[in-house]
């Protein structure tokens, strides 16, 4: 139990895939323009991550090491397509707003990295928890960045206007350059917080 909690804390904070490991930057920048997109993208990636981690962990002794990457990609691509079809059928609005980025989960390096670094070496339960922890960590980082960008760049949060009609949104923030700026500031701030917390513990 304690190990599970540690794994979750690791995924959310100390080893956060986006803010500490710095992987999965492309979908992070692309889908963090609004909070609703961020939550949708984060949960979609978490779903794929949990499923692919479970399957890859189950198959880890069967897959010959030389073709492992090809096998992982086929499994991941399969789950992403399943998710894409399910979203188009049952969550059409979200599917429209995330558009191109759902198929691109296939090449989200968080998923391949966790398959290679964790699921291929650990048991099914641990791998599932790792998928959940990293998925939540990705969602958490996306939500932080998206809130920042949506509040400054559009003056809304989750589509609800915050500042009234007189607020002139800083549109640059919801575009690519603003994404880089916000991400940089966020990573720096996160490092400071993590260091402070760690310093207090030791």
């Amino acid at each position: 139990m304690k190990k599970t909690i540690n794994q979750i804390i690791d995924g959310l904070f100390t080893n956060n895939p986006v803010l500490v490991q710095l992987i999965g930057m492309c979908p992070t920048l692309a889908t963090s323009t609004s909070l609703s997109n961020a939550i949708g993208m984060g949960l979609a990636a978490a779903f794929v991550l949990i499923c692919s981690n479970i399957v890859i962990s189950l198959l880890r002794k069967l897959i010959p090491s030389k073709v492992r990457i090809a096998c992982y990609i086929v499994v991941i691509a399969g789950f992403v397509t399943v998710l894409d079809l399910l979203m188009q059928a049952y969550l059409p609005d979200l599917s429209v707003s995330l558009g191109m980025y759902i198929p691109l989960i296939v090449v989200n390096c968080i998923i391949l990295a966790r398959a290679e670094a964790f699921a291929s070496k650990n048991g099914v339960f641990r791998s599932m928890i790792d998928g959940l922890a990293m998925g939540l960590g990705f969602t958490f980082a996306l939500c932080l960045l998206a809130s920042m960008r949506e509040i400054i760049g559009a003056g809304t949060i989750y589509g609800i206007p915050l500042f009234g009609a007189n607020y002139q949104p800083v549109t640059m923030i919801v575009q690519a350059p603003g994404g880089f700026l916000c991400l940089g500031i966020l990573i720096a701030a996160f490092q400071v917080v993590i260091k402070k917390v760690k310093g207090r513990k030791s």
Binding site: L59, P64, G78
Partner: peptide, 22 residues
């Protein structure tokens, strides 16, 4: 499993088939 050509091809092929079926 060992890295023999037969094992590599068959494992990858079976995974592809299973995913396609899904």
């Amino acid at each position: 499993m060992k890295n023999t050509p037969v094992a590599m091809i068959s494992v990858l092929a079976i995974i592809c088939l299973a995913v396609s079926a899904l």
